[in-house]
Design a protein around this nucleic acid. Structure first.
Lengths: 275, 275
DNA sequence: GGAGCGCTGTATCGTATGTTACGTATTTTG
DNA sequence: CAAAATACGTAACATACGATACAGCGCTCC
C-alpha cells in the first residue's frame, strides 16, 4: 500500500538510472519543498538537466509536472490539517467512542484559533460594540441556536440587538430597518442555505456590515462579508461540529463585554433592579 | 514585529478594499495552500478577478506573484522543520485576550469529560435513542440555545422530539403529554431559574426521566434528575462558558445517531426526498 | 445633484515555464 | 573489443501563466 509520493519514490529508487536517482534523492532530502518549485530550480538543485526531472516525474506515473506538483500540495494540505498533536499523542487507550470525538473537537478549536488573529477578533468586537448601529443575528438550520446564544448575551449589555427568527418572509421584512451603521451576524455552514445567501446579498446591498461565521470551505456569503470567521467542523461523526464556532462566539461575547465595560456594568445593574 | 505573512495580512486587513479583503480571507481560511496555486485558481476560489489577486499581493509588499509564493514556501519549509512549534499566530504580546480564554475552555472540556464515563454517556444515549417515548428539551435564559441545537439534530433522526419554547405557561401545559416513557432534557446553569426547577419537579412527579445539563455546582434540579452532566463553566470572562456542555451535547447527538443508524439513515433519506 | 476619485473586471500582451526532438556520451552485451 | 541500446543534455518550441492598460461603475465629498 503506497500512499505518499515519498513512499512511491523509495519503492522505485532501485530501478532508476543515475540521473533520476539524483533527482529523487534531492527531493527526499528536502521533501517536499523542492518539488513545489520550478523544473529549472529543481534541476539545478539536483545538478541534472530539466528533461531528467521531467523523465523522473513521468516514471513516477504522472502525466506532467503540474500534476506532480498538485499531488505534493494535496499531501501537504492533508498533513497540515491533521495536526502533529494527533501523531504525537496516540489515541488515548481504552478509547471509548468518546475520546476520538473530543480530541477532534479540541483540535478543531486550536486550529480555528490558529487561523484567527487577535487583531481580527478585536476589530469585530469593536464593530459589535459600536453602539451607533443596531445588531442583527441569524443562523441556518443547525446554527441558528448559536445566533440565539450570542444574541442572548449581547442583548444584556447593549440595546438594539435583534435575533431574526421565524419564517424567511419575517426577517426579509426586517431588511427595511437595516442600514450602513448596522451589523448583521450570520452563521452558515455546509450545506449552505440559499435563503441565507439571498438575505445576506440584500443586506449587503443596503450597506449592512456582515460578520460571517462559517466553515473552512467558506459559505458563498463570504462574498458579501466584511469579516469572515472560518471554523473547523470535521469530527468523526455523522454530523459536522459547530463547537469551534461556539467558542469563537463566546470569545467575542467576552471581548465585546470588556469593551462596553463602563456602559455595560451600569446596564446590567439597571437590569438587576428591574427584576 | 511581523514575521509571517498571515500576520501581515491580519495587520493590513482593515485597510484593504472589499475585493482584496475577500482574497485575504480565502487565503487565511485555507492557509497557505491556496497561495501556492496559480493566480487563476486563487482568484476563482476567492470569487474575484486575477488582477485583484495581484493587487492584493502587491499591497502586502511583494514585487510579483512568484516572490509572494516563494515567501509562503519558505514559511512552510521552516514550519515543517520544527513540527512542534506551529507558529501561525504566535502568542500575542501584551497579553492576548484570546489565548487565556481558549486555554481555559479547552481545560474545561478535558475536565468535564474526565468526570464523565463512557458508560454514563452510553446510558443516556441509549435512553434518548429509545423510541418508545417522546423527548422534550428545554433550557434556561442563556442555555436554551443549547436545547434548541440538540433538538434540531435529534429531530432529524427520530420522531417525537420537541423543544419547549415560549412562555412558561406554554410549556407547563405540555406536562399533560408527558409520562413515564418520556425523557426531558434540561439545561440549567447558574443562576438557576426557579421556573425550570418548578417545571422539573412537576415532570418528575409524572414519572418523566430527566437528563440534566448543569454546571459543576449542580442545579437544584439534580434532585429530580435520572442523569446529571456537570460541565465546567469557569473562564476568564464576565460570563460563564457553556462550551463544555455544548461539546457534551454534540457527543451525545453523535452517539444517539450511531445507535439509530439503521433507522436514522432511512429517515434522513426520506427527508432529503421531501425537499 | 454633480464632479472627482478609487476600486474592479475585461481584454491584451510578453514571457517564463514545461515540453519535445535530436544528437552525443556512456554503458551493456555478444 | 565492437556494436547496440540506453541515458543524458542542448536547443528549439508551444503554451499557459502572470502582468498591464484601459474602461466602466459605484462611492464619497463638495
Amino acid at each position: 500500500m503506497i500512499s505518499s509520493i515519498a513512499e512511491l519514490i523509495a519503492d522505485r529508487l532501485g530501478t532508476m538510472p543515475a540521473g533520476e536517482r539524483r533527482a529523487a534523492q534531492t527531493l527526499i532530502a528536502s521533501y517536499p519543498m523542492i518539488g513545489l518549485k520550478t523544473v529549472a530550480e529543481f534541476s539545478a538543485a539536483a545538478g541534472v538537466s530539466s528533461p531528467t526531472i521531467l523523465r523522473f516525474v513521468a516514471r513516477l506515473g504522472f502525466q506532467n509536472y503540474p500534476e506532480f506538483q498538485s499531488s505534493l500540495q494535496d499531501e501537504l494540505a492533508a498533513q497540515l490539517q491533521s495536526p502533529a498533536i494527533r501523531t504525537l499523542n496516540p489515541p488515548s487507550p481504552g478509547g471509548g467512542t468518546v475520546s476520538p470525538m473530543l480530541e477532534a473537537t479540541l483540535d478543531n478549536m486550536r486550529e480555528t484559533f490558529r487561523h484567527l488573529s487577535d487583531k481580527q477578533l478585536a476589530d469585530i468586537a469593536a464593530r459589535l460594540a459600536d453602539r451607533r448601529g443596531k445588531t442583527f443575528l441569524i443562523g441556518g438550520r443547525f446554527t441558528d441556536p448559536l445566533a440565539r446564544y450570542m444574541a442572548a448575551h449581547l442583548a444584556v449589555i447593549q440595546p438594539d440587538v435583534f435575533h431574526l427568527a421565524g419564517q424567511e418572509s419575517m426577517w426579509r421584512d426586517r431588511l427595511i430597518d437595516m442600514g450602513k451603521r448596522d451589523v448583521l451576524v450570520i452563521f452558515d455552514i455546509r450545506r449552505y442555505q440559499d435563503s441565507l445567501v439571498r438575505f445576506a446579498e440584500k443586506a449587503h446591498q443596503r450597506g449592512v456590515q456582515i460578520v460571517l461565521f462559517t466553515d473552512q470551505w467558506l459559505s458563498p456569503i463570504a462574498r458579501f462579508a466584511r469579516h469572515v470567521i472560518a471554523g473547523r467542523t470535521a469530527v468523526p461523526s455523522a454530523w459536522d461540529s459547530s463547537a469551534a464556532l461556539f467558542v469563537v462566539a463566546e470569545t467575542l461575547i467576552g471581548a465585546v463585554t470588556r469593551q462596553l465595560e463602563a456602559d455595560g456594568a451600569r446596564r446590567i445593574r439597571e437590569m438587576e433592579e428591574l427584576r
